[in-house]
Simulated scan of single mutants.
Amino acid sequence: MSEHADLPYRPCAGVMLLNARGEVFVGQRLDSVVEAWQMPQGGIDPGEAPLEAAIRELGEEAGIAPEHVQLVAEAPDELYYDLPEDLIGRIWKGKWRGQRQRWFLFRFLGTDEDVNIRTAEPEFRAWRWVEPSQLPELIVPFKRDLYRQLLDIFGEPLRAHGGPVR
């Protein structure tokens, strides 16, 4: 049992953004020292709906305007991950043991020129489109199971909107 088991999970929204080729947007975090790529995600503000948070995070992290996305699917349940013990207390001011996330699958209606990671408070140093099946190997190890779950949850709409998932 973790010594941090009494800490709550941080409420968060995540976005799987799918382009017309069936590829998913990932960014490389500015604050990461490892070669890890992730999908946009961020905290849900008090009183904010998860969908609103997801759209806001897309703007804040990728510079993508709401008119350039279309909601395809929403994960029916929250997904959880725990931080590794050595990170608890070092991030989020030690208030959280991990995250509970609401995930949304969006179709990207824009072009690559509509992506701008040089936002007011940048979070990514680079971005690219990847095959959905690559997601678990690109993310930090403690989020791999969550990304595998997302591929299962969004498997049907991913196949319908962009081709094979695995």
Results as ranks from 00 to 15, higher is better:
residue 131 E to Q: 15
residue 84 P to M: 01
residue 132 P to V: 08
residue 34 V to Y: 10
residue 76 P to R: 01
residue 30 L to E: 11
residue 20 A to T: 14
residue 28 Q to R: 04
residue 134 Q to T: 14
residue 5 A to Q: 02
residue 38 Q to V: 14
residue 96 W to H: 12
residue 120 A to Y: 06
residue 131 E to Y: 14
residue 115 V to E: 01
residue 16 M to I: 15
residue 92 W to M: 09
residue 106 F to L: 06
residue 49 A to V: 12
residue 110 G to C: 02
residue 98 G to A: 07
residue 78 E to Q: 12
residue 112 D to T: 12
residue 103 W to N: 09
residue 108 F to N: 02
residue 160 A to I: 14
residue 138 L to F: 12
residue 88 I to H: 00
residue 54 A to T: 05
residue 79 L to P: 11
residue 16 M to W: 15
residue 146 L to S: 15
residue 114 D to C: 03
residue 56 R to V: 01
residue 18 L to E: 06
residue 95 K to N: 07
residue 75 A to Y: 07
residue 48 E to A: 09
residue 159 R to D: 14
residue 130 V to Q: 04
residue 133 S to I: 13
residue 139 I to C: 13
residue 122 P to F: 09
residue 40 P to R: 00
residue 12 C to F: 11
residue 144 R to N: 12
residue 145 D to I: 14
residue 118 R to M: 10
residue 88 I to Q: 01
residue 145 D to W: 14
residue 37 W to S: 09
residue 128 R to Y: 03
residue 135 L to F: 11
residue 166 R to M: 13
residue 26 V to L: 04
residue 116 N to Y: 01
residue 138 L to W: 11
residue 126 A to R: 11
residue 81 Y to R: 04
residue 46 P to S: 11
residue 10 R to L: 11
residue 51 L to K: 08
residue 75 A to F: 05
residue 12 C to W: 08
residue 94 G to E: 00
residue 65 A to H: 07
residue 14 G to S: 10
residue 22 G to I: 11
residue 14 G to D: 06
residue 21 R to T: 13
residue 94 G to D: 00
residue 57 E to R: 05
residue 72 V to W: 10
residue 62 A to C: 03
residue 84 P to I: 00
residue 51 L to F: 09
residue 57 E to Y: 03
residue 23 E to Y: 13
residue 155 G to D: 12
residue 141 P to G: 07
residue 77 D to K: 06
residue 20 A to R: 15
residue 58 L to I: 05
residue 29 R to A: 05
residue 139 I to E: 13
